[in-house]
């Protein structure tokens, strides 16, 4: 603005200055308005998290966030619950097993689908994607239960892992196929000319190249299993195998009220591993591509 006023002729100096200050005021007001709006939105989403941060340390937590009467008794009470900690371990079993299955099979399927010309391939993928939302959904719970019962997979972690994997695989294949499509085939052809077998090509070349994709799918699978309630709730009988999502459902007082002290504490422990996993994976595998193909 200073250049504008200095170059303007002398008699008219005031007019552009007034105009400029008007623009500046409007600019500041717009900025204030924007930040107020952002704060409101942020507050709306942050309040439940604030509750999660304060309630576990509060002597008498309510369903509102408040300044806590600091105590660690809630954690001691949770440790007295026989299933609380072991359920977290169960969740880890289920999540790790499902993630391993999903990543392995999705990688192999996506590689094949990306590299081999199969007639009707896209229709197949979209069909699977559509059906997958049904597989782990409520609608097919009865036939799935029947199937698990016939296969002797009731009350078995393997059964839960298989059913969850089945539900997640199509979307995982879809995501990974996109990653595979994005890697040039000349890497693999080069390895082929040197005599590498298909499995060697996958191990030495393809897996390292799509590692960010594999990490994404792994994290996504873990987060899905971690939050899944219905499948383990129906297929696992006793509380000793139940994952955290199911155990949380049992945290009641004798009076049948939700036990907010245990519930809030358990919620905190329940959400921490997933949050930590996100941080770890994004720092370890982050989305980067090394290059090396001259474009």
């Amino acid at each position: 603005m200073s250049t504008a006023t200095s170059t303007a002729p002398a008699p008219r100096r005031d007019a552009p200055a007034a105009e400029a200050s008007g623009i500046a005021v409007r600019h500041v007001l717009a900025r204030i308005g924007r930040y107020v709006f952002l704060c409101a939105v942020l507050g709306f989403f942050a309040l439940p998290l604030l509750w999660l941060a304060t309630a576990p340390f509060d002597d008498t937590p309510t369903i509102t966030a408040s300044l806590p009467q600091f105590t660690l008794d809630n954690f001691r009470a949770l440790l007295d619950n026989p299933y609380a900690l072991s359920s977290l371990l169960n969740s880890v079993y289920l999540a790790a097993g499902t993630a391993a299955l999903v990543v392995t099979f999705a990688a192999l399927a996506a590689y094949a689908l990306s590299r081999v010309r199969v007639p009707g391939r896209d229709a197949l993928l979209y069909g699977l994607l559509l059906l997958s939302s049904i597989v782990t959904g409520t609608a097919t719970m009865v036939p799935l239960f029947e199937l698990a019962f016939r296969l002797n997979l009731i009350d078995s972690r393997l059964g839960v892992i298989l059913i969850l994997s089945g539900g997640l695989l199509p979307a995982a294949i879809f995501i990974l196929k996109d990653f595979m499509d994005g890697t040039p085939t000349s890497y693999e052809e080069s390895a082929r000319v040197f005599g590498a077998s298909p499995l060697q090509i996958v191990r030495h070349i393809v897996v390292p190249l799509v590692r960010p994709g594999l990490a994404t799918v792994g994290v996504w699978a873990v987060a899905n299993v971690w939050g899944n309630f219905l499948v383990p709730f129906l297929l696992l009988r006793g509380p000793e195998k139940a994952p955290a999502a199911v155990i949380m459902y049992t945290l009641y007082t004798e009076g049948g009220q939700a036990d907010l002290r245990l519930l809030s504490t358990f919620s905190l422990l329940y959400s921490l591993p997933v949050a930590l996993m996100f941080v770890f994976v994004s720092s370890r595998y982050g989305f980067r591509f090394h290059g090396g193909i001259k474009r």
């Binding site: 890497y187 052809e189 080069s190 390895a191 000319v193 030495h204 390292p208 190249l209």
Partner: peptide, 14 residues
């Protein structure tokens, strides 16, 4: 027993 150099060189980036 042939070796091929590709147009984009196809050096393994990792």
């Amino acid at each position: 027993d042939v070796a091929m150099v590709f147009q984009d060189y196809a050096l393994f980036p990792h």
